[in-house]
C-alpha cells in the first residue's frame, strides 16, 4: 500500500469533503451570486437608466467587485477547510481518517483554491454575461464612456462583457487572491481559535510590512523603469509577470508551510 498518495483514497477524501461541506459550499456560492446580482442591479441598472447621469462617466466597478468579493470568498473557503482542526472535538475524528497528510492537504487545497476560484469565476462571468446581455438589449441610455483609444466619448451605453474586457487582468490579479487565500489556508492550520480574525490581523501586519518593503525595493531596483506618482510609495510596474511569479512562489511557500504544520498537528 502506498502510504503517501493513492488516487482512490484521494477520491474518497474529495467525496467525503463534498458530502460534509458541499451544501454549505453551494449556499456560500449562492450568497456570492446574490451579492453580484444585487451589485449589478443597484449600480448599473439604476445608474444607466437614470437620464440625469448622461454626462457622467460610467466607471467600471466590476473589477473592484470581482476582486473584493473574490478575495473574501476565497479566504473564507480557505479558512473553512482546516479551521475545524482548531476544534478538538472535530480534530481527532479528522486526523484519524485513514488517508495520508498529503492527501488531506491536497483535498483542502483543491476545495479552497481550485474549486473555489473556478466556481467563483464561473458564477461571476455567467451573471455578468446574462446581465450585460440584458443591458445591451434593453438600455437606450447614452453615457460618457472611454473608447479603445482611451478617449472619453458620448454614445449609447454598450458595456463589454467582463471577461471580454478583463481577461488579461483576471489572469494577472488572480494571483493576488490566491496568495491571500494561501495565507488564510495557513492560518486555518496555524491558529487554533478564531482563525479568520487572527489571520486577518496577521495579514494586515504582513501587508503593511510588504508595502513598505516593495515600495523601497521598487525604487531601488526599478528606478528607471517605473512611473512614480505624487505618493512616492505607489508605483506602477510594467513587468507585471514578475509580480505574478513572485505571488505564485509565495503562495507555494505558504502552502508548503501549511502542509508541514498539518503534519505536525496534534490531537
Amino acid at each position: 500500500m502506498n502510504n503517501t498518495f493513492n488516487f482512490k483514497r484521494f477520491g474518497l477524501l474529495m467525496k467525503r469533503q463534498w458530502l460534509e461541506f458541499g451544501k454549505i459550499y453551494l449556499i456560500s456560492l449562492g450568497i456570492v451570486a446574490g451579492v453580484i446580482i444585487a451589485s449589478y442591479g443597484l449600480y448599473y441598472f439604476r445608474f444607466i437608466e437614470n437620464e440625469g447621469m448622461k454626462n457622467v462617466l460610467v466607471p467600471d466597478l466590476r473589477v473592484v467587485l470581482f476582486f473584493i468579493l473574490g478575495t473574501l470568498f476565497l479566504t473564507i473557503a480557505a479558512n473553512t477547510q482546516f479551521s475545524q482542526l482548531g476544534q478538538k472535538s472535530k480534530l481527532i475524528v479528522d486526523l484519524m481518517v485513514p488517508a495520508s497528510t498529503l492527501e488531506k492537504f491536497l483535498t483542502g487545497l483543491f476545495f479552497s483554491v481550485i474549486l473555489a476560484f473556478l466556481s467563483y469565476l464561473l458564477v461571476f462571468c455567467l451573471i455578468d454575461f446574462a446581465l450585460v446581455s440584458e443591458l445591451k438589449n434593453t438600455s437606450h441610455s447614452e453615457a460618457l464612456q472611454m473608447n479603445d483609444a482611451g478617449q472619453l466619448v458620448m454614445g449609447k451605453y454598450n458595456p463589454a462583457y467582463f471577461f471580454e474586457k478583463n481577461s488579461n487582468m483576471i489572469i494577472q490579479i488572480a494571483s493576488v487572491p490566491i496568495l491571500i487565500s494561501s495565507l488564510f489556508f495557513l492560518g486555518s492550520v496555524y491558529f487554533t481559535k478564531h482563525q479568520y480574525v487572527k489571520t486577518m490581523i496577521s495579514l494586515m501586519v504582513f501587508s503593511g510590512l510588504w508595502i513598505t518593503f516593495t515600495a523601497y525595493t521598487n525604487k531601488y531596483i526599478f528606478h528607471d523603469k517605473v512611473i512614480s506618482g505624487d505618493f512616492k510609495w505607489i508605483v506602477y510596474i510594467h513587468k507585471t509577470e514578475w509580480w505574478i511569479a513572485l505571488y505564485i512562489v509565495l503562495s507555494v511557500f505558504f502552502w508548503a508551510i501549511t502542509y508541514v504544520r498539518l503534519r505536525e498537528k496534534e490531537g
Binding site: 500500500m1 483514497r9 460534509e20 472535538s89 472535530k90 475524528v93 485513514p98 488517508a99 497528510t101
Partner: peptide, 23 residues
C-alpha cells in the same frame, strides 16, 4: 506518529469528546 493510512485503517479511536458533521 507517521499517521500512515495502512495503520489508521486498523485503528478505531473513540474520543471522549467529538463532534459529528451535519449529515
Amino acid at each position: 506518529k507517521q499517521r500512515q493510512p495502512a495503520l489508521l485503517q486498523e485503528i478505531c479511536f473513540i474520543p471522549e469528546e467529538f463532534e459529528l458533521p451535519s449529515i
